[in-house]
């Protein structure tokens, strides 16, 4: 193998060093994609890890870019990996200080859809968590106002789940003006 082809040994990113030192028991897996560190974290310690990432002076992931979820019910490989967790709640973080991004993924089982809300850490999580609740039915514990945000209040079901039919259960054909205007 010529010298040009040898891959230079990358230093472990700071976030992984610190998480392995302080929250090693919470870490299920980690990866790096396009310069973004991806960590998979146990649900029980998710809030603590996110709080640590935000408040640690060296990491300072102060900006919560997005909260969303993924329904893995049709992805066998992901299902196998984390004990058949159907949903993966995803937090996208950005550190102004380090000018780098991080992605925190939390597996959520179908039989226990509760996950702690991060609205106490980031006010901006309020609507993002409402959207995730609306689309996937993830229940964020401690959220001040967990209502639907996109779909009508009387809507039934969570449309971004893989088992939700594209054309719905007939909501668009049978909605009631009087009920909606009340």
């Amino acid at each position: 193998m010529s010298e040009e082809n040898q891959v230079e040994e990358q230093p472990t990113p700071l976030i992984l060093q610190k998480l392995e030192a302080n929250h090693a028991d919470a870490l299920l897996a980690h990866d790096e994609t396009r310069g973004t560190v991806v960590v998979v974290v146990r649900k029980e310690q998710a809030y603590a890890v996110l709080e640590y990432l935000k408040t640690d002076p060296e990491l300072a992931y102060a900006f919560l870019v997005d909260v969303t979820a993924v329904d893995n019910s049709q992805m066998e490989s992901e299902l196998m990996q984390f004990d058949y967790a159907r949903f993966m709640v995803v937090y996208q973080l950005y550190s102004y200080q380090g000018q780098c991004r991080a992605r925190v993924k939390v597996p959520v089982h179908e039989n226990d859809l509760n996950i702690p809300s991060v609205t106490r850490l980031w006010q901006g999580a309020n609507w993002l968590e409402r959207e995730t609740y609306d689309m996937f039915g993830i229940h964020f514990e401690g959220h001040p106002d967990l209502r639907r945000i996109l779909m009508p209040d009387d809507f039934d079901g969570h449309p971004l789940r893989k088992d939700y039919p594209l054309r719905g259960h007939g909501e668009r054909e049978r909605f009631n003006f009087d009920k909606q205007n009340a």
């Binding site: 779909m151 939700y164 054309r167 668009r172």
Partner: peptide, 13 residues
């Protein structure tokens, strides 16, 4: 947009 959320023609209403 033949989807769950979209009215398939406002002339229904």
């Amino acid at each position: 947009f033949d989807t769950y959320t979209l009215i398939q023609g406002v002339d229904q209403f």
